[in-house]
Simulated scan of single mutants.
Amino acid sequence: MQQPQAVHGPCVWRGTDYRNPADWVYTLSAQALADIDRAVRHAREAGLGLDEITPAEFDLPALAGDLATMAEILHSGRGFVRLQGIDRARYSDDELGIILWGLGTHLGIGVSQSQRGDRLGHVQDRGEVGRYYGIGGPIEVHMDPVDVTGLMCLTPAMHGGATPLMSSFAVHNVILAERPDLLPVLYRGFHYGSETVIKGGLPITEHRIPVFNFVAGEPDCFFLPAAIRGPNGEPRDALPAIEREAIDLLQAVADRPDMKIDMLIDPATVQFINNRVILHARSDYADWPEPERKRHLLRMWVMMPAWPKRPPEVQMLRSTDRAGGGIAKAEA
């Protein structure tokens, strides 16, 4: 086990460092918006499925340099980017999904998010217990088991529903300073498994996955509490007290006001985050009374082949879709 030490670099930040949205929001130019419009129209007219939408098919010349910069920010910068300026009223929900997917293909490779083989996840209260994105209300601090998550808002909540972002290694450093005795517990990590994973033929991990780790010298965080709670079918209370304490402290530190950026994602706004260095959550919200106005976001999972590959002993999903990530579609 690696000896805990303070981590430094652009991915280590506090929410107080990014209070000014101008520091992290990219407003699309008229030329970029025109490129996006041409690209989505081409995809529709050609009848392209999501897997057929490639950077060549979704050509964005006015954004090429900016997308390369965004990929660098995700990998070795602050770990999150946001794009705004798309006209929500101009596009259907399906077209906005094409836009999110098309932008994501310029960063990496889109992968499936469930055994159903869905390329775009629908983040909406459907009462789908077992998956964070299928339930309403607040969501605890976690990351997604994929390199990058992309989000696009279709319909915001009536009230609330912010998506706080936190630097996982800023949280690491606070724990190192305040409770260094708990860091070895997080470096040792946890066994992972859930009903969803088991049904997909993916057994509970026999190995522990460290919460804080380094892959090819790069910081790497893996923290998915929903899948920690049920190893071997046992309740979370069955975990040793020191492990529960470490989990609780990590979540409490991440939730401190100075540690997080509380982001509300406006309609047609796009956000990409690096799950290896960013934790996220969701604040409580109130939906509109009309069913068609329920809070609704689209989610894309992206693998980054150019990044150092996580070795098997720090992965939860053993059966993958593409590019070494995602969840393979269940056989009929």
Rank of each mutant, 00 (worst) to 15 (best):
Q2K: 15
P10I: 10
Y18R: 04
R19N: 10
R19P: 03
D23M: 13
W24R: 07
A39M: 02
A39S: 06
R44E: 13
E45G: 03
G49A: 08
L50M: 06
E52V: 00
A56M: 05
D59N: 10
P61H: 03
A64H: 08
G65C: 07
G79H: 03
F80R: 00
G85W: 01
R90I: 06
D93E: 15
L96W: 00
G97S: 06
W101A: 03
I109Q: 00
S114Q: 05
S114L: 05
Y133M: 11
G137T: 09
H142K: 13
G150M: 00
C153K: 00
L154I: 09
L165V: 10
F169R: 02
L176H: 10
A177Y: 11
R188M: 06
H191N: 14
E195W: 06
V197W: 13
G200E: 08
G201A: 08
T205P: 07
E206D: 14
E206R: 11
V211Q: 09
V215C: 10
P219E: 14
P219Y: 09
D220H: 07
G230S: 13
R236C: 14
P240N: 06
P240I: 10
E243Y: 14
L250W: 04
Q251M: 15
A252C: 10
A254H: 05
K260A: 12
I261S: 00
I261E: 01
M263I: 13
I265A: 01
D266L: 12
P267I: 05
P267C: 06
V270C: 02
I273K: 00
L279V: 03
R282N: 05
R282I: 13
R295P: 01
W301Q: 01
W301D: 01
W301I: 04
P305N: 08
A306Q: 12
P308M: 12
P308I: 07
S319P: 01
S319C: 12
D321M: 09
A323Y: 00
A323M: 04
G324H: 02
I327N: 01
A328T: 12
